[in-house]
């Protein structure tokens, strides 16, 4: 199966007023299409920084990142923005829906961004996406009118609306109760199987990690363990 992500010697340092802190130490890994991978590790281990680098939101200090067959360091800001829009979906802990837009419009945003303008059929596709996450009847609701679980389901549907090969989820269930967490994870698992979408899920929840195909444990900016979840 083709790689959707490849990292080679990814290092990241932060300069805090002359004090240089290395957060990631030469990370090497690859993710293939259809893989459901959990990234676990203690707080401050570098998980979110790694996710930001993979999401092309932050450049590595050293090393290379491939999204599909495109090498990110060769791209300028416009190229990175395009690659991000086409190949990567994002799910955040606090859903980060745009409050000014309805649920359907939030789903339409990746499509509008891709085309550069609103277009025919976008709303229908958004409603299909909402129906798939069980919120077809809440298309015109504002994020503030939805529960936390519903907001996160909308965020999952938004991340998947233009069928990216890779979805990055940063603590997607971290802010949800057990029942909503299970619903959101089941959604991701379903898309993973049906659409062959690769998911990289940063989580502190061992139950979520246990249900993934693969677990990468990061400790102090290094991969400590990479393999099947411990049973």
């Amino acid at each position: 199966m083709a790689d959707v992500l490849r990292l080679e010697g990814v290092t990241r340092e932060f300069d805090n007023g002359g004090v240089v802190t290395r957060v990631l130490h030469g990370i090497d890994t690859r993710v293939v299409g259809g893989e459901l991978t959990a990234i676990i590790g203690p707080s401050g281990s570098g998980k979110s920084t790694l996710l930001n680098i993979i999401g092309l939101l932050m450049p590595p200090t050293d090393g290379k990142v491939w999204i599909g067959d495109e090498e990110a360091s060769a791209l300028d800001d416009r190229g990175l923005t395009r690659l991000r829009g086409q190949k990567i979906g994002f799910i955040f802990q606090f859903h980060h829906l745009v409050p000014a837009l309805s649920a359907a419009e939030n789903l339409m945003m990746p499509l509008i961004i891709e085309k550069g303008r609103t277009g025919e059929g976008m709303r229908e596709r958004a409603i299909e996406g909402l129906t798939a996450v069980g919120l077809g009847d809440r298309a015109d609701a504002r994020p503030s009118q939805l529960s936390g679980g519903q907001q996160q389901r909308v965020a999952v549907a938004r991340a998947l609306i233009n069928r990216p090969p890779l979805v990055l989820a940063d603590e997607p269930t971290g802010n949800l109760d057990t029942e909503s967490s299970a619903v959101v994870f089941d959604l991701m698992r379903r898309y993973n199987r049906e659409e062959n979408t690769a998911f990289l899920i940063v989580t502190h929840d061992p139950r979520i990690a246990a249900q993934c195909d693969r677990v990468i444990e990061i400790v102090d900016g290094r991969i400590e363990r990479d393999g099947a979840p411990e049973s």
Partner: peptide
């Protein structure tokens, strides 16, 4: 919101 739009591919 601006960060989210940029993450989704808005230039």
């Amino acid at each position: 919101e601006i960060g989210i739009l940029r993450a989704m591919g808005a230039t």
